[in-house]
Nucleic acid binder design. Sequence first.
DNA 1: CAAACCTTGACACAGCTGTGGTAAGGTTGT
DNA 2: ACAACCTTACCACAGCTGTGTCAAGGTTTG
Lengths: 127, 127
Amino acid sequence: MDALTIHEAAETTGWSPRMLRYIERAGLLEPARSDAGYRLYGPAELQRLRTLRELLSTHDIGLTDIGFALRLRRDVELHDAVEAWFEEKVSRPDDVPAANWLRWEQEKHQRLLRAVALQNPTVLETA
Amino acid sequence: MDALTIHEAAETTGWSPRMLRYIERAGLLEPARSDAGYRLYGPAELQRLRTLRELLSTHDIGLTDIGFALRLRRDVELHDAVEAWFEEKVSRPDDVPAANWLRWEQEKHQRLLRAVALQNPTVLETA
DNA sequence: CAAACCTTGACACAGCTGTGGTAAGGTTGT
DNA sequence: ACAACCTTACCACAGCTGTGTCAAGGTTTG
């Protein structure tokens, strides 16, 4: 059979078993279950888990962000409400604030790096 | 002049001055500035602030969620990557997990209510 | 049947979120 | 000039996020 248990799936995807359950809890991926209730990860799930890893790390976002995106595409009313808010630029239609969240994100990243460096100084060498 | 200062804007929108700065920091709304650097909120900004309040409370989402939605519509690459991940349901195309995050959200809400109730028992009466 | 899995549930903990303060120092209006 | 604003930059604090670990109990397999 080509369905892995949670530890095996963890092994090949780089997540921990703990995180695989967490991801499921967040509604991002729901593996099949065996008769006894064991989680069964097929090839498609494994691929999605790897892609998810890639997605989060390369764009520096969190699981909850994907969770929100998921909610956006399911709850059309929410989606429309959010779009309406963005579109509501009644004045100054040439408004382009795009610089703040960038600095924000950069600072968050800096704080994270400092915190990690405190507990594991070797990251600085490979960075 | 129809531009309010931060305290006045706070008054009419229901946010605190503190939060208006926070919202700006998160990149969601950038008011004009006076020569001396004072924030100036025009009618459009005030409306957006009220709508934002409504949006957050009725859908029970956070500022960071809107921040992420903003990022999604600015960073096309990110948007495509997220969409690609959702679309990557190579197997089981009839997969509909839509129940987990609901329970998740409900529990979050419950925890919040309990926590609030501990410090302010009167909320239970009006609920 | 015993080792090696799996399941859910709970405790723990650092960092981020959302808020409120306070301080030191400019600006404005009377 | 003085009160009453405003600005940025910090401290604080409860709750959420992302992780790990451990316990009590069911399942699989040699």
